[in-house]
Nucleic acid binder design. Structure first.
Length: 796
DNA sequence: TATCCTCGAGTTCA
DNA sequence: CTCGAGGATA
């Protein structure tokens, strides 16, 4: 070893001194030496480490400048899972009382028992992180991930000045062999603003909000970038601990962490009973805006570790802690105008244009108003009004109401237009319906554009490269009138269209390069269109945009009838016997195909080479549903109740009935009269014959054996699941497909009938609802286990 | 007939 | 995510 003893010693001394200054500066916020002096020490250490590479150490303060660039973050399995915390949905102070009541009930404390002691702290709006210290040295930092496995972000976390690379130890005390500190990396508001001011001045992209800034910084692969971001940290708990006696209470644990030199927020309290918690909630709510960092609520924890252990966990959430959030942030802004949009179905939707306002972490400029009733309900919004805006469920902007006293004298009330703003056709509002619709149909270009966009959408035909911009142009320049025209587009068409569009917009010079890019774009789009020619039947049905036929109904049609042709030819009564399809939806489907323009559009589509790839035999259960008694009940004959329909079916099948009511029927006279009247009405007789003939055709194609018995059934078969949050490895769509392939159902909202809620990261209100209803909550791993599990085994 | 539940449709912003 | 409306159910 050529390293001189003095160099090694000097390095050690410098590190100790710098660490001490770091602690005083970053954690205690009370620097003891001038910045220039600190910089001198820091540079001396850098120089020594450079001259003696063998003295480098991962926990040297010099590591804070970053340097390593990674390809990806390695997964890290948490020794103790990182918990999520239940959110008290009640935003009022009663949330604290509800929590206390649950705790007392679980602990079987009577009314006479003394109040429970709680630790109350802030819920920081940042990024949860686990810091692993071994023998006092920071060896690993990991994100929460799914709670079981996170990402190794050690390099980036080392650049956070507030996080000590080594724990401070009291004189003569040894460091714990293993101490995992759990906490939140966040960005102070002032740091965030300073950073953004500089970024803007440098022409760089600013961060959206402190939370995104913190999360984005930690997820940088280049630790130099992370080092340039002003991040802070607060500890709030522990993970794995080995060889260190745990304090008796949560409050004492945080005190101990603070003594180790780890930043702990001073805004915390140990209190007794729910009223004190509610007071803390209210007090912090009042001070919220004045805090140097963002919080989205407060957290209550049972203080005693012994009681925590007694309370235990439900799935992955401790029963001894809750987050009590504040109501969504609201802001005031001016209503600059109300525009109306025309949707695919012709629905005219008023949308509020707002003076940009920063609320809930983003700048909001638009908010839907849904329909005329809604505008009325918000207090008869007028252009020029001052309105209250919030982000509902933290996502969709919502207008809460109007500040009546601030209405200017020249405020103009909003009135629903009487003519479509796009095509000029008159608008209609059906009796009892909330939506106003453009009557233009096909002749309304807005509806055509939206219909084509819907057709091309990801869950429908999934045509890549066909976005709003191009659809608008294709329709505007009349290259495309209906969806079938997409399949006739040529390279020349697209290039010509682009040229005309560019010319009109007066953009894009005619260079050789631009031409090449245009050709590339057109080729990609044509490839995307061509690739969509063999969709699944359900997707094709969904893509057509039939009213009331969404993803789920399209799937029902495809599953039960199996062939496009049968869906197309099916009269309404036949459709109405399918599950979840009633008279309205059945009529909408039959009407769609009866309409000449739709029929020819469908023909054109098939002529262009589009064909469903997965047509199959009808559903085995269809025979039962196609019983004449069911069909008769669905015919809509007045007075023919389901009971009478069964009576009628006993004596006559459809074909016979079309010839006339048999003499041996036992129907009451007035019912028989109604049936005869119905048969006599124009077209009904022949419609019945067509129904009978199609019915025969479908039944003849029914598979002989019951397929259901042959297919192994997984534990999710027949179960209803709801997905919420972001799953660690599975995309939402992939999870859905797996569940459906196993015979399960994926619903959009949680109810009593839900069997499982599959919760991922950042699960929202659905998780709360599941807990409120006592629905089982599982994670991705448990879902996968369920999918594998045979139905005969017990569900976990 | 009333009630509960699920589905469809429309929408925001980065 | 929210709303309204349609379907199933008691």
């Amino acid at each position: 070893m050529s390293t001189s003893v003095s160099a090694a010693e000097r390095v050690r001394a410098l590190r100790a001194e710098i660490e001490e200054h770091d602690y005083r500066y970053y954690v205690l916020d009370a620097p003891q030496i001038p910045d220039a002096e600190y910089d001198r020490l820091f540079r001396e250490l850098q120089a020594l480490e450079a001259a003696h590479p063998e003295l480098a150490s991962p926990d040297s303060p010099t590591r804070r400048v970053g340097g390593k660039v990674l390809d990806a973050f390695a997964p890290v399995r948490h020794a103790v899972p990182m918990l999520s915390i239940r959110t008290e949905t009640d935003t009022e102070a009663s949330g604290a009382f509800a929590f206390d009541a649950r705790v007392r009930r679980e602990l079987k404390l009577g009314d006479g028992a003394p109040p429970v002691e709680y630790a109350a702290e802030l819920k920081f709006d940042g990024l949860a992180i686990s810091l692993r210290y071994e023998d006092g040295r920071l060896v690993r930092a990991a994100t929460r991930g799914d709670g079981e496995t996170g990402e190794d972000v050690t390099e980036n976390v080392r650049t956070v000045a507030q996080i000590p690379a080594r724990l401070r130890l009291q004189e003569g005390r040894a460091a714990p062999p293993v101490l995992e500190v759990r906490g939140e990396i966040y960005m102070r508001r002032a740091d965030f603003e300073r950073f953004n001011a500089r970024a803007l001045a440098a022409g760089e992209k600013p961060m959206v909000n402190p939370r995104n800034g913190a999360a984005g910084s930690i997820r940088q692969l280049d630790s130099k970038i992370a080092a340039s971001r002003p991040l802070s940290f607060f500890a709030y708990g522990l993970g794995e601990v080995v060889g260190w006696p745990l304090p008796e209470t949560h409050g004492a644990t945080l005190d101990a962490l603070a003594a180790f030199g780890v930043p702990v927020c001073a805004e915390r309290a140990v209190v007794k009973g729910p009223q004190a918690l509610a007071d803390f909630h209210r007090r912090m709510g009042e001070r919220r805006a004045g805090l140097p960092f963002d919080i989205d609520g407060v957290v209550y924890k049972v203080n005693s570790r012994a009681l925590q252990e007694q309370l235990g966990f439900v799935t992955r959430e401790p029963r001894w802690a809750v987050a009590h959030k504040y109501p969504a942030e609201e802001a005031l802004t001016r209503l600059l105008g109300i525009e109306v949009q025309v949707g695919r179905t012709g629905a005219i939707t008023p949308v509020a244009r707002l003076a940009p306002v920063f609320v809930g972490g983003v700048t909001v400029t638009n908010a839907t108003l849904h329909n005329a009733d809604e505008v009325e309900r918000k207090g008869g919004l007028c252009i020029g009004d001052t309105v209250i805006v919030r982000r509902a469920g933290d996502v969709i902007p919502q207008i809460v109401g109007v500040v009546a006293e601030r209405r200017p004298a020249d405020a103009r009330p909003f009135v629903m237009p009487t003519a479509c703003p796009v095509c000029g056709a008159h608008v209609v509002r059906e009796e009892g319906e909330a939506v106003t619709r453009c009557s233009g149909g096909f002749s309304c270009s807005a509806q055509r554009i939206q219909a084509i966009l819907h057709f091309a959408g990801r869950r429908m035909m999934d045509i890549e490269g066909l976005g709003e911009r191009y659809v608008e142009r294709l329709v505007e320049f009349e290259y495309v009138h209906g969806v079938a025209d997409l399949y006739r587009l040529t390279l020349d068409d697209l290039l010509e269209m682009k040229r005309r569009a560019d010319e009109r917009d007066g953009t894009v010079p005619e260079t050789v390069k631009a031409g090449q890019i245009a050709t590339r774009w057109a080729e990609n789009l044509l490839a995307g269109i061509a690739a969509s020619k063999s969709p699944k039947l359900s997707r094709l049905l969904f893509a057509l945009g039939i009213r009331h036929v969404g993803e789920s109904t399209a799937k029902t049609l495809a599953d039960w009838l199996g062939r496009f042709d049968w869906v197309r030819r099916a009269p309404a009564p036949l459709l109405a016997v399918l599950p979840d399809i009633g008279a309205t939806v059945a009529a909408a489907i039959a009407d769609f195909f009866a309409e000449a323009r739709n029929a020819s559009a469908v023909d054109a589509l098939f002529a262009a080479g589009v064909a469903p790839a997965d047509e199959h035999a009808p559903h085995p259960g269809l025979a039962e549903r196609l019983a004449w008694s069911e069909l008769y009940a669905a015919l809509g004959i007045p007075k023919l109740t389901p009971v009478r329909a069964r009576q009628l079916a006993a004596v006559a099948d459809g074909e016979r009935l079309a010839d006339g009511l048999p003499a041996d029927h036992e129907l009451p006279a007035e019912v028989a009269e109604a049936v005869l009247a119905w048969l006599a009405a124009t077209g009904n007789g022949s419609a019945l014959r067509r129904l009978a003939s199609l019915r025969g055709e479908i039944l003849a194609a029914l598979p002989a054996a019951d397929i259901a018995t042959a297919v192994p059934r997984s534990a999710v078969a027949g179960k209803t699941l709801v997905l919420t949050g972001t799953l660690p490895t599975l995309a939402r769509e992939a999870a859905k497909e797996m569940i459906e392939a196993a015979g399960g159902k994926v619903a959009g909202s949680v109810s009593k009938k839900t069997d499982y809620v599959v919760a991922g990261a950042d699960a929202g209100s659905k998780l709360d609802k599941a807990q409120a209803l006592g629905v089982a909550v599982i994670d991705e791993a448990q879902l996968l286990a369920l999918l594998q599990l045979d139905n005969e085994g017990e569900t976990p």
